[in-house]
Nucleic acid binder design. Sequence first.
DNA 1: CGGTATCCTCATAGATACTG
DNA 2: CAGTATCTATGAGGATACCG
Lengths: 133, 133
Amino acid sequence: MAEDGTSKTATHIDVPDQVNEGVTTCQLREVLDRVGDKWSVLIMALLGSGPRRYSELRRSIDGISQRMLTLTLRSLERDGLVIRTVTPTTPPRVDYELTPVGLTLSREVSSLIRWADEHREYISVSRRSYDAG
Amino acid sequence: MAEDGTSKTATHIDVPDQVNEGVTTCQLREVLDRVGDKWSVLIMALLGSGPRRYSELRRSIDGISQRMLTLTLRSLERDGLVIRTVTPTTPPRVDYELTPVGLTLSREVSSLIRWADEHREYISVSRRSYDAG
DNA sequence: CGGTATCCTCATAGATACTG
DNA sequence: CAGTATCTATGAGGATACCG
């Protein structure tokens, strides 16, 4: 992949080795910023287990403001990861669901959340230890 | 896991379903913020393929400032994800390597980077399409 | 119900200069 | 080489109010 000769001591992953290749880093940033914001991961994980109404998402995600929920959903929609469906009843109803590609990202972030869940105690202990010594 | 009865239409993932359970969300935030910052993912991915010197990381990660590199590395060290080894020669030499737990996170973020790499074109097209229509 | 529109704040991170 | 110390600003995100 990396046509660069400096292949260091690559042990186990096939990530682009030179993250500074210009194209790679910049394009990567665009996408990592998508998943790096405060709410996308949680929203994607929730939608991973089925479509949700706007109000359901709002209630499910503790601490999110209406503004950020809308902004994040719009951004995910723009990236082709979720589909927004408006049912023009009164009062209106809006459902959000993952696209096929969105589903694959959802699986990734769910895996990450699982990791976080499994290691939060370890991290917590590490922090206390570090802050002490 | 979630002892709550409202198990909605869970289809395929085993993520904590109620992300607003207080404990879950807060603890999750702590850890997600770790991986959600601008540079951690890239650093973890790089260290995933072996130890690196400070200067190597600096050169490998395009656009990172000395300040942010140090801050991020310290934070990762504090969380028990990387180990910092100082060799007090002149000039000094400092190596960073993953802990066993760090390695597992590295695998997660590498997977995420792979996803980003595979779907950046799709996302790019989606954005243009959204911005047009 | 499902949003916009504003305003405002505070943390993240860049630039620059200095040091053991 | 591998940092630390400031100083600054930019923008992500919260609070609040209003709208179709």
